[in-house]
Design a protein around this nucleic acid. Structure first.
Lengths: 366, 366
DNA sequence: CTGTTAGCGCTTTCAT
DNA sequence: ATGAAAGCGCTAACAG
């Protein structure tokens, strides 16, 4: 019963005009008579016509209004927020987005990128899985498809990237803990083989050194960057003979886990033990009042990445512009029961509002 | 420098065959000689050919290997997990997915669905924004595009749906609190105008009635279904003259907020005050040991919804099958410091493992 | 302002 | 087992 498919020619016939006129109406061309336009639009409504972008795209030289977004762990609120930020600007720009989660699998990542290419994406934003190689983006950029790498840096990839200032954030956080009088400060969570982790640990170490504190390798404990990982990490950290009194956590999930673990030992995070999280998520800002975090505003970062991509798509130039997202240390006012030597002070105080360096080189598109 | 675009005809020329043969190779047809196939594949590799699914789809009668996923709040971990579950089965099935976040905006939802249709999705999974009307899906189903509604029921929509058993979950949770000796039990968080909220409140009320407890309207307090909302809700609840001693929370985010709020008043959730959350998220399972939750396994639900959709896409029939996802009450072992009259017992104990009703009616596709 | 004509890259009979 | 030709739904010249 349902007609096979309503096409331009159907509506052309119904409106008593030719396909081309219909096409012009569809593109809101000013070259068409008001009367005809009205008749055509009526026919479109009556017949329930839906525009076929696939066909249009085949003919047109313009790009496809589709972008791809690939993330390594959508389960992590940080990436969910990031995706939401991208979604906002992409929707506003009339784009629709493929979204794929790799779960850190390089195979899935490769498949998914290939698939997106076959579907004609005109740009890609990716937070690469661990172990991603710069060469994985070669074909894309060779084909003139702009790519924006976010969150994790890929050395040697000649594409745009947007990274948070992990070194500065970790350093500021550690200095904050030192200023509060802590001498045994742990770095908890995350895997050592990522650039993100390396940068944060560098910042942490340099702050310790600058503060005249020795770096004890035992105080750096790896774990999954999850809440469960945080619980495990703090438990291992507390086994050390000379226990830490504070910790910088790889991310917020780890920090939450550390808080859980502390409470299980009757320690109050913020009073008895200093905790600083990383990769702050919006909602968390109202949630754990005693927790200090290094905030990177994931939604804002997502929006910015999306804008970087759109700029390239619209200009037709693929660039390799490295941007660093600013990062700020947020110290929350401790609430009610929690009060002690630290954390009782400023509310949402910005300690460091950091760099936003820009280093651009661009190559023209062929 | 980069060639305009490599097409089948280019690789046909390079391999010394015709387009049709190349097409056969691409479809892994057995009708083609091993030798030719090899030459063609070599050419494909050499020229860096990428298959154009848009063009293929235009000619082909088959469906598009693209599905749409629309959620109302990706910021909520529940939906992020749901999306991850869907992503898994869609990727495995060789599909790629559009994902859009509506943020409860009906306008955005309409735009996004229209846009996805124009791009030729062959199916849609949607967690509808508040206020979505059944008629919004009419055009889709009229066109033979299968739709699966998840999480929130839309009365009168003649499409498949997958909902969790909110009534049974809320009822079991409330009965659990009653069994622990609570007499003043609040229902915290969520907006009254959603079916989800209504069902949960019904389960809560019926459990109270069955337990011989009066339903005090003051004990039901609405708030945003977020962590911040939970803090607000518990604060309002504690203003009541005859205070509650326990609460069933609209979702996990609210429950976390309630815990935050309790701690701010020096109350320990689980010992001093009974808290039950809803919409349990995987990671949370290891995270808040003292919290009882009604678990709906969002990833599993996402996988199941995706399978429902794929079944319809592959069979070419659009059905209207209502499924109810099972729900279970999980009581976690209280940890360390927390010990008291309740919650000190079983770990991950399944109190209610509920219905999985299935009611199917199907209409043939035109 | 509107109609004609010619493809975009692919699949698909139908011949060979 | 392979080739020739037609056409999917649309846009882009170019005529009128």
């Amino acid at each position: 019963m349902t007609k096979s498919r309503v096409t331009v020619v159907d509506i052309a016939r119904a409106a008593g005009v030719s396909k081309s006129t219909v096409s012009l109406v569809l593109q809101a061309s000013p070259l068409v008579n008001e009367q005809t336009r009205a008749r055509v639009n009526a026919a479109i409504r009556d017949l329930g016509y839906v525009y076929n972008r696939g066909a249009a795209n085949l003919r047109q030289t313009a790009s496809s209004k589709i972008v791809g977004i690939v993330v390594n762990d959508l389960t992590n609120s940080f990436f969910a927020e990031l995706a939401v930020g991208m979604d906002m600007v992409m929707q506003s720009a009339g784009f629709v987005q493929f979204l794929a989660n790799t779960g850190e699998s390089l195979d899935r990542q490769r498949e998914v990128i290939a698939s997106m290419r076959e579907h004609g994406i005109s740009g890609l934003i990716i937070s690469p899985a661990r172990g991603t190689d710069a060469s994985d983006f070669k074909p894309l950029i060779a084909a003139g498809v702009p790519v924006v790498i976010v969150v994790r840096n890929i050395a040697g990839a000649k594409v745009s990237s947007l990274l948070s200032d992990n070194y500065a954030g970790a350093r500021a956080a550690t200095e904050h803990l030192i200023a509060l009088g802590h001498r045994r400060i742990a770095f908890l969570g995350g895997f050592a083989d990522t650039a993100v982790s390396a940068d944060r640990i560098d910042g942490y170490r340099d702050a310790l050194a600058a503060g005249g504190l020795a770096a004890d390798a035992a105080l750096v404990v790896n774990s999954a960057p999850s809440r469960a990982g945080g619980v495990a990490a703090i438990e291992r950290a507390m086994l050390i003979a000379d226990r830490p009194t504070a910790a910088l956590c790889f991310n917020d999930a780890v920090a939450f886990g550390v808080c859980d673990g502390l409470r299980a030992r009757s320690l109050e995070p913020g009073r008895d033990f200093g905790v600083v999280g990383f990769d702050d998520v919006i909602e968390a800002q109202t949630a754990v009042p005693a927790l200090t975090t290094v905030s990177v505003d994931p939604q804002g970062m997502g929006r910015r990445a999306a804008q970087m991509l759109l700029k390239q798509i619209n200009s037709g130039r693929v660039e390799a512009e490295a941007q660093v997202a600013s990062v700020r240390l947020v110290v929350r006012q401790s609430c009610g029961t929690v009060a002690g030597p630290w954390g009782g002070g400023a509310s949402h105080d910005t300690i460091a509002n950091d760099t936003m360096g820009t280093d651009r080189r661009q190559h023209d598109r062929p």
